[in-house]
Design a protein around this nucleic acid. Structure first.
Lengths: 111, 111
DNA sequence: ATATAATATTGCTGAATAGTAATATTGTCA
DNA sequence: TGACAATATTACTATTCAGCAATATTATAT
């Protein structure tokens, strides 16, 4: 655990990683890949986005090191490279859920 | 723990939260607020950014529910509203550190 | 009241980027 | 070889937004 402050370079890297996770389409792709690897076409079908866009976002996720690519004949399969992203999303999800509960409780009390 | 898929709305909310964390200046502000609450001017001094920009970024962090605001006389103090963001940053940091170690090991072996 | 300090807001510019249509690339099969 | 399917790339548009200078607001103090 680092107690020291992060420098500008480290902050930029962290921000970059967060920014890759800051797009609904990419998050959707990630959650579909959580179960098992999928080909581009399969992702296009489940993610409800155009092929060009899916390919582009897969490239971004791959460049960020979040996805692994494997070519099998005519198909290209993508899979999660580092499951830590699910921990990240879990944290965010529980935070949002907790916030929503607080909102709800406040609203209920007020009536 | 939710096993169900997240819908478009939930994905948008998660992406929004990540996007707030996807800027080096905001991350820098957060890490400075980790120790104790600070006034805007104090943040301007430590964060090395213009006053207008700091104020703007503080507003964004506050609107996202990550910071609490308290006015004390002439000064406005900001403090962390939900420490979960540090868990998030810790996760990202250890991932990046791990990746860097792997890179280093690969490079060392290659020589 | 008026001056001054702290903070917020406004209007702007430049850079980044999601999504798209069209096209290019890569691999398979006949 | 040529046709076809899967994937990637290109060129473009529209949107978003960080950072800035200037100005507005809010509170203190004299």
């Amino acid at each position: 655990m680092p107690k020291a402050m992060l420098d500008q370079n480290q902050l930029r890297m962290i921000a970059k990683l967060f920014s890759v996770l800051a797009e609904p389409t990419r998050l959707d792709i990630l959650q579909h890949l959580k179960k098992k690897p999928l080909s581009v076409n399969q992702i296009v079908e489940v993610a409800g986005a155009k092929q060009a866009n899916v390919s582009k976002q897969l490239g971004i996720l791959h460049d960020a090191g979040l996805l692994q690519r494997e070519r099998l004949g005519n198909l290209v399969y993508y899979k999660i490279a580092d499951p830590v992203i699910f921990d990240l999303c879990s944290l965010v999800c529980s935070k949002l859920r907790k916030d929503a509960e607080i909102q709800l409780a406040a609203f209920a009390k007020q009536r």
